[in-house]
Design a protein around this nucleic acid. Structure first.
Length: 748
DNA sequence: GAGTTTGAAACT
DNA sequence: CAGTTTCAAACTC
């Protein structure tokens, strides 16, 4: 291309006197050079961007840095004041903080000292900031300096220089943060997040929150090899280091025992030498080995933030959830927001901490007071990272002990007697833990499972509730009516489920009985939708016009067609599902009024408002894998039919409500795969299966329906809609019946 | 803060 | 697996 351009420039006309002019020569010479110059520049950014996620990811990432500051000010009444003082250079600060992150990522394991100081420079944006932003953009977390080779390394070196220069004039305020980051090594160490967030919320180290957390995220993501590295004990410890030490001291690091022992020795020394520091640290860094706990604790860190109901916090927390998928994060966030809404104060796992000399300490006076107030309200629920026990006889080596159960060492605030849950007795702790785990491998797993995937692992159908929290084992309350914290479900803020053996359940978060109610209601709705759909079919038969290819609602070309198996859609809808609105409604919403919940849900419907949509909508509050089966005409596929008898089809085989998801295929493949409309002239009611015939006959109000049997269909059962032909089909076992040979406009 | 209640954990 | 005991948190006063 350059050659052709050159030719165009150079060879249009025979040489003229103009060519000899300096201007012409200048232009003639400049053009190709400009092109050559511009290309490398673009390529440099492109190369960086290529390793970066799309902008949709970069924005939250960037906002994370921005909001990390907010995040730290959340608990302060003078948040705005803090912001004023901090916002000397908003955007550039973020960038520089981020640059610290990059720097740390690159060299955390190499130079502790560098780590300590890399966070110092906050206020002075450097020339490399923009490039740093580019480096940081990838929310994938990979330090671009390592990935991108020389160019980004150069940038990083430049940043380091800048940082070094700033270091001389910077304050030591943030020094501790960098090495404190090293405390957290495990990607699953979500409780560490929680604790860290606690600390953050508690006011100190305002600015480095983002650095710390992103650092953690990046470390865990990018340097997995370091996951098992011993904690980096930084020399020249500051007060915060003692604090850190106590944090580590309370950490039950079951997976790196050998490596930890060395640290433990140090910790013990610290413990002897400075219990004050220990007591100042009630926050807990969880045991790295507590990977199971981390599952549930992934949401813990969020909890703290969401109380602020700041959308920015959401972004932060998404960022915190480094290992969580966006969908998971969303789910967690939704839940957390709901929790924060329904339980103000509970989400604040804030611990009192001894204030440390920090630059912005004055900004935190109020926040500390507030936190103390919050602390009173705060209840060390199941999800709290900071446990305090009062064990007398168990030596804190049984699950009776909250600390031990939470996977943390007992610390100063504990009032336990003869406590063995100390780093000194780590061997005993580990042995006991192993013993308990041998008895019950999930003994240290979170009691409440908020992750839908985890829920899906359970054997109970009722637990297969997407996006709903469940107590793992269920409660067994007899007298508390699940209305007091004796009830683990209530304490965890989740509704009772079919797993519970409670009596007289009145759990405000969801009665067990609500299951039955939900089942009944869903069945009613299913019937209604059945009737509605069959009515539509009748109309279609009447009109007898070919299928419409004009969807009223544009839909993405690719869609999952979900065939809800009867037991999921019909019988296994837990009450909490009703509380999971499309937006912020929550499973925490008391289920006292299911109807109200449904009413609230109704406005959320964006398509036709007929009753048939309620259930699918509810079901759609599931992870992304379950997509509503909505026709382009906004006509929802009715829940699958269940005949009076479930024999003769997959219905007879209860499959725990698993959803059969049929992936839509390109049009040319769709017809072949579904084998329709193979017999367009099939006789009406040519039904080979009794159940469909019976059902259709009944639902069609006596009108004959065009039902064509289609062979060789994957087993499954239910009604589904084909986006390619805008037809509905019924699947019964291995047979598919085309229920909409002629389609009509959907009812509005 | 002491005593009671409660339900999970542990034990048999 | 069911019944009992132990235990510590939650609760009440």
């Amino acid at each position: 291309m350059d050659n052709s351009q050159k030719k165009k420039i150079e060879t249009p006309t025979p040489k003229s006197k103009f060519e000899d002019s300096p201007v012409f020569n200048y232009i003639n010479n400049l053009s190709p050079i400009e092109a050559v110059r511009s290309i490398p520049t673009v390529q440099t950014f492109n190369s960086l961007s290529f390793t970066s996620p799309p902008p949709v990811f970069t924005s939250p990432h960037a906002s994370f840095h921005r909001e990390s500051r907010f995040f730290r000010c959340h608990n302060s009444v003078e948040r705005s004041k803090a912001l004023e003082s901090l916002d000397r250079s908003v955007s550039t600060q973020e960038v520089v903080v981020a640059s610290g992150e990059v720097d740390l990522n690159k060299e955390a394991t190499l130079e502790d000292q560098e780590d300590e100081t890399s966070c110092d420079r906050v206020d002075s944006p450097g020339p490399g900031d923009i490039v740093t932003q580019v480096l940081l953009d990838p929310s994938g977390g990979a330090p671009q300096g390592e990935d991108d080779g020389s160019s980004s390394q150069d940038v990083s070196v430049g940043l380091r220089k800048i940082l070094d220069a700033q270091k001389e004039s910077g304050t030591p305020r943030l020094m501790a943060d960098a090495d404190e980051l090293l405390v957290f090594r495990s990607p699953n160490d979500s409780e560490a997040f929680g604790c860290l967030v606690d600390k953050i919320s508690s006011s100190e180290r305002r600015f480095c929150a983002g650095v710390k957390l992103t650092k953690h995220r990046d470390i865990t993501k990018d340097v997995p090899a370091n996951d098992n590295q011993p904690l980096a004990v930084v020399p020249n410890q500051l007060v915060s280091n003692l604090h850190r030490g106590s944090m580590r001291r309370r950490c039950l690091d079951f997976e790196v025992l050998g490596k930890r022992k060395k640290d433990i020795a140090d910790d013990d020394q610290l413990a002897v030498g400075d219990n004050k520091a220990e007591s100042s640290s009630k926050c807990v860094v969880p045991g790295i080995g507590l990977h199971l706990n981390a599952i549930a604790m992934a949401s813990r860190g969020i909890k703290i933030n969401t109380i602020h109901e700041d959308s920015a916090s959401v972004e932060i927390q998404k960022s915190f959830l480094g290992s969580a998928t966006p969908v998971q994060s969303q789910d967690i966030m939704r839940e957390t927001l709901d929790q924060a809404e329904s339980e103000p104060g509970k989400g604040l796992a804030v611990e009192e901490e001894t204030p440390k000399p920090l630059v912005f300490e004055e900004l935190n006076q109020d926040s500390l007071q507030k936190k103390k107030q919050v602390r009173k309200v705060e209840e060390p629920g199941e999800g709290d990272s900071c446990k305090r026990c009062n064990c007398k006889k168990s030596k804190c080596l049984k699950l009776y002990c909250e600390c031990f159960a939470a996977g943390v060492y007992c610390i100063e605030p504990c009032s336990c007697v003869d406590c063995f849950n100390r780093p000194i007795h780590e061997d005993t702790v580990l042995a006991t833990r192993k013993q308990i785990e041998s008895r019950n491998p999930l003994a240290f797993a979170p009691k409440v499972i908020r992750n839908s995937d985890s829920i899906m692992e359970t054997s109970d159908d009722a637990s297969k509730t997407p996006a709903s929290a469940r107590h793992k084992r269920g409660c067994n309350c007899k007298k508390s009516n699940c209305l007091k914290k004796y009830c683990e479900c209530f304490q965890s803020g989740v509704g009772c489920s079919i797993n519970c053996r409670c009596e007289g359940c009145k759990n405000a978060f969801g009665k067990k009985d609500a299951y039955l109610l939900a089942i009944m209601e869903s069945k009613q709705e299913e019937d209604l939708s059945k009737i509605q759909q069959n009515s539509d079919l009748s109309k279609e038969v009447e009109q007898n016009h070919p299928s419409s290819d004009q969807p009223s609602t544009p839909l993405p070309p690719y869609r999952h067609m979900v065939v809800h198996q009867p037991f999921l859609s019909k019988n296994r809808l837990p009450p909490t599902q009703f509380f999971l609105g499309a937006g912020s409604s929550s499973f925490r919403k008391p289920d006292g009024d299911l109807a109200q919940a449904r009413i609230e849900k109704k406005p959320l419907e964006t398509v036709t408002q007929d009753k048939t949509e309620i259930m699918p909508e509810i079901l759609s509050n599931t992870p992304i894998t379950t997509v509503k089966a909505i026709s382009p005409n906004s006509k929802r596929v009715s829940p699958p039919h269940i005949g009076s008898s479930e024999s003769g089809s997959i219905l007879g085989k209860r499959t725990n409500g698993r959803k059969l998801i049929l992936r839509a295929q390109p049009l040319q493949n769709a017809q072949s795969s579904f084998a329709f409309p193979a017999a367009s002239s099939a006789p009406q009611q040519s039904v080979t299966s009794n159940q469909p015939a019976k059902h259709v006959k009944k639902a069609s109000r006596g009108r004959p329906l065009k039902i064509r049997k289609i062979e060789n269909i994957p087993s499954g059962s239910g009604t589904f809609w084909s986006p390619f032909t805008d037809r509905s089909f019924e699947v019964f076992g291995s047979r598919v019946y085309d229920r909409s040979a002629t389609d009509s406009q959907p009812p509005q």
